[in-house]
């Protein structure tokens, strides 16, 4: 096991796959000569050259569509969209072309592209650089959505996404690129579907994904030590499809659920997980599920206001205590 950073894990997955298959290429703004805004493609330009490591113009929809077209012929492009806010501009090609082409061609064409993007609120980046957009991506037929919460997932999910014949959107997080974690030394493929139990527990399930897994883990620690509540933390690294079985199994064991997401409600992972709970195991519930989410405001610049917008582990703890009638 190597203890490496999230960005290093992503870089390693790129490097291994590009070394293996000459049709694996990567593209995006500043990913080549500059090595990537978050260093996720560091050193690849020097190693694989400009034909395979493409510094693109700032034309998100254009270069995303270019990647999709190349993938029709078996090229495996990894597209970095510098910030998920800019992915709005590329949604036309991701949704209308990549996600639909297999279906509308009756299975003749496929778009095996990987779209990686840094989502989430960082520090005081304001309304147009702090978006969480997983709620939009996870509702598109034909598109897989995964979101790594640690370096191991960042490495293994990208490896699997590159190999998979479906288009995959990987939702990363601006605040997580320097997070360290254990990654297997050998080649490792993380499943694109399912969920991980990040911490086992018996009294309540805390559902999280990406950064909110860490709020949940911290909250579970506090709940255990200060309140004697045993929380299970389920890491929903796959947002499309969501792991119905994993959700049912955990809630059937704990009978209570809190869903923590950095995205805003309404519409999102929280509402979807609650719908799945209703459909799969409603009668297992001892209390109505609760979601913890951001306030529905364009991200404010002011530090205090920003902090008030985004939830954290304390909000998760509060939600659990409320479920148990302790708050």
């Amino acid at each position: 096991m190597a203890n490496i950073m999230y960005w290093e894990a992503i870089q390693r997955a790129h490097d291994e796959e590009m070394a293996r298959d000459p049709l694996v290429i990567c593209m995006g703004e500043d990913i080549g000569v500059a090595g990537g805004t978050y260093k996720a493609t560091k050193g690849l330009y020097e190693k694989y050259g400009p034909l395979r490591v493409m510094d693109t113009p700032i034309s998100e929809n254009g270069f995303t569509g270019l990647a999709v077209g190349a993938s029709f012929l078996g090229v495996r492009p990894i597209v970095e969209i510098m910030s998920v806010n800019f992915a709005w501009l590329a949604m036309d090609q991701m949704f209308n072309s990549a996600a639909k082409v297999r279906y509308m061609s009756g299975g003749q064409l496929a778009a095996p592209c990987v779209f990686r993007s840094a989502g989430g609120a960082a520090h005081q980046l304001g309304a147009q650089h702090s978006a969480r957009m997983e709620k939009v991506f996870m509702g598109i037929a034909g598109l897989r959505v995964v979101t790594p919460s640690n370096p191991k997932q960042a490495y293994g999910l990208l490896k699997s996404a590159i190999r998979c014949d479906d288009p995959v959107f990987i939702n990363e997080h601006e605040l997580m690129y320097n997070m360290k974690g254990e990654v297997p030394d050998g080649e490792y493929f993380h499943p694109l579907e399912g969920s991980d139990i990040a911490r086992a527990g018996t009294d309540v399930t805390l559902f999280g994904y990406n950064i909110s897994v860490h709020w949940c883990l911290k909250a579970a620690e506090i709940l255990d030590k200060q309140y004697g509540i045993s929380a299970e933390v389920v890491d929903l690294y796959s947002l499309a499809p969501l792991d119905r079985d994993g959700i049912r199994k955990s809630v059937s064991k704990t009978h209570r659920a809190v869903i923590a997401e950095e995205d805003e409600a309404p519409v999102g992972v929280g509402s979807e997980v609650i719908a799945i709970i209703n459909e799969e195991c409603f009668f297992e519930l001892d209390a109505a599920p609760v979601r913890v989410h951001s306030a529905l405001v364009p991200q404010p610049y002011n530090h205090t206001l920003e902090k008030a917008t985004i939830p954290d582990h304390e909000d998760v703890v509060k939600a659990v205590l409320k479920l148990f009638g302790k708050a």
Binding site: G62, F63, T64, G65, G69, V75, Q93, L109
Partner: peptide, 27 residues
């Protein structure tokens, strides 16, 4: 679509095929 004949399809978003064509050329 007729992929076997290398007809890569008709698309209904006006202008949508421009980058797809460039991508095919890239491949």
């Amino acid at each position: 679509f007729d992929a076997g004949k290398r007809f890569m399809g008709g698309y209904a978003l006006v202008g949508g095929p421009f980058p797809l064509a460039a991508g095919i050329a890239k491949a």
